[in-house]
Design a protein around this nucleic acid. Structure first.
Lengths: 222, 222
DNA sequence: AACCCCTATATTGTCGACATTGCATTTACA
DNA sequence: TGTAAATGCAATGTCGACAATATAGGGGTT
C-alpha cells in the first residue's frame, strides 16, 4: 500500500507513536491515568519527553488533561461514538466531493484497481484484509481531496479514535460485501467527476457504518 | 455575551494565549520564525514553557514545526483560505443540522434575541459590532450542536485561523445586511427543527462568505 | 573559478532538580 | 461525633544546564 508513513525522528516522536498505539490497541486501558513519572521510568526517557508526547495525544483527542492534576485516556461511550461519526460524515463527505474535483486520472485508476484487488481478497474469504482495505480506501479519498486541513484532522486525529473504538469493541470485519458495493459506487461517482453525488454516497456509507458499530456496541455493554 | 471564556491557569497557558493573539493579530508576522530562546527572554519564562506553547500552536495549525529546525508561523495564501473555508462549510453545516436537533427552546430564543439586538446595532450603523456579532452567532450554533469534537475543532482551531485571515487582510465588516438575512433564515430553520435545511443554509452562507473574502484577497495581493 | 569537505556556531532536543499545586489523612475544636 | 483547618505526600509545573543536530562559512582541491 502506498500510504505515507510517519517517520519518527526525535525521541518524543517515538514515544508519542508508542503511546498512541498502546492506547488505541487497549494496552493502556481507556480511562486510565497517565502518570508522567511512571511512564518516564517505563519508557526510559525523561519526563519532558513524556510531557510532549502527552500534549500531542491531547491534541488528537486521545487523552484529556487537567492543569495541575494530570492526563487520562479518554473513555469510550455510545454518545462519543455517535459524535465522532457525525464529524466523520461531515468531513469525509466533503473529502469525497473534493476528491471528485481534484484527484488526477491515475490516482483514480489506482483507486479503482485497489478496489478490484480487495474484491478478490474478499471473495476468497480473507477476513484479515477487510479492515486494512477499508482504511486504505478511506485514506486515499481523504488524501485525494488535496485539502491539508481535512487530511490532518482525519488522518492524524479522528481515524485513530475510530480505530480505538473498533479495536476495543472487537469489530473484526462487519458487513463486508455491502460496504464493498458502497465503495464501488463512490469510486464511480469520483470517476465521473460528480462531487455532489460522491459526497452524498460517502455520507450514507458512513451513516450505515455508524449504525452498524452502534448496534454492536449496544448489544455488548448496557 | 455568554461565551465560555478560556481561563489560563498555568504559565504555559498564559504564554500560549499571548502567542496566539500576537500571531492572529499580526504582531508576529505570518511566516516569521519562532525562536525558542528569543521568546523565552522576551516573555521572561523558561524555554520549556515556550516549547509547550509552540506545541499547542502547532496543534491548532497556527505554526508549523520541523524537527531539529524550529517553528514558523503559517503563511497565508489564497489556496489556504479556500481549503479552510471548505472545512468550515462541512463542519458548520453539520453543526447547524445538529443544533436544529439538539438546542433546547430557551437556547433558541436566546439566539433569536441575539439576532434582534444585532439588527438594531446594524441599522444604527455600528460597524464595530459587526464582526463580534457574526462570531457570536456562529459560536452559539456550534455550541448548540452539543458535539464535543465539532466544538473543539472549530472553536479551538479553525476560528482562530479564520480570524487571522480576516485581521491580516483588513476585513472590517463586509456584506453586513445580506449576512444578517442569511443568519435570520438559519435561525428560523433551527427553530422549526429542520436540520436538513439549516445545514443547507449554513453551507451556502459560508460559501458566500468565502467568495467575498476571496474577492478581497485577489484584489489586494497578486 | 567551481565544487566539496570540514569546522564553528547557534538552535533545538533532552535531562535531572527544584517549586508549586492538589489530595488524602490526621488532628483539633465545637 | 461531625466538621473544618492543618499537615504531609505525591504528582505536575518550571527551570537552567548539557547533548545532539542543522546551517553557514572558510579552506582546500581539481
Amino acid at each position: 500500500m502506498s500510504l505515507p508513513i510517519e517517520t519518527p525522528v526525535t525521541n518524543a516522536d517515538k514515544t508519542f507513536f508508542r503511546l498512541r498505539t498502546d492506547i488505541v490497541e487497549g494496552v493502556i486501558q481507556a480511562g486510565a491515568k497517565l502518570s508522567e513519572t511512571e511512564l518516564s521510568t517505563r519508557y526510559a526517557v525523561s519526563r519532558a519527553v513524556i510531557r510532549e508526547a502527552i500534549n500531542r495525544l491531547e491534541a488528537c483527542h486521545l487523552v484529556e488533561r487537567k492543569a495541575n492534576v494530570g492526563a487520562k485516556v479518554v473513555t469510550l461511550s455510545a454518545a462519543g461514538l455517535v459524535q465522532l461519526y457525525q464529524v466523520r460524515e461531515a468531513l469525509e463527505g466533503m473529502a469525497a466531493r473534493l476528491a471528485a474535483e481534484n484527484m488526477d486520472a491515475d490516482e483514480i485508476s489506482d483507486l479503482q484497481s485497489l478496489l478490484d484487488a480487495h474484491s478478490n481478497k474478499v471473495s476468497s474469504g480473507e477476513t484479515y484484509y477487510q479492515e486494512a482495505g477499508d482504511v486504505d480506501f478511506h485514506y486515499r479519498i481523504v488524501l485525494g481531496s488535496k485539502n491539508a486541513h481535512l487530511i490532518s484532522v482525519l488522518i492524524d486525529g479522528i481515524y485513530h479514535l475510530v480505530r480505538m473504538y473498533r479495536v476495543q469493541l472487537g469489530m473484526a470485519g462487519p458487513r463486508v460485501t455491502t460496504a464493498f458495493e458502497e465503495h464501488s459506487h463512490i469510486v464511480r461517482a469520483i470517476a465521473n467527476r460528480d462531487g455532489e453525488l460522491a459526497e452524498m454516497l460517502m455520507r450514507r456509507h458512513i451513516l450505515y457504518s455508524k449504525n452498524n458499530i452502534e448496534r454492536k456496541l449496544n448489544s455488548i455493554s448496557v
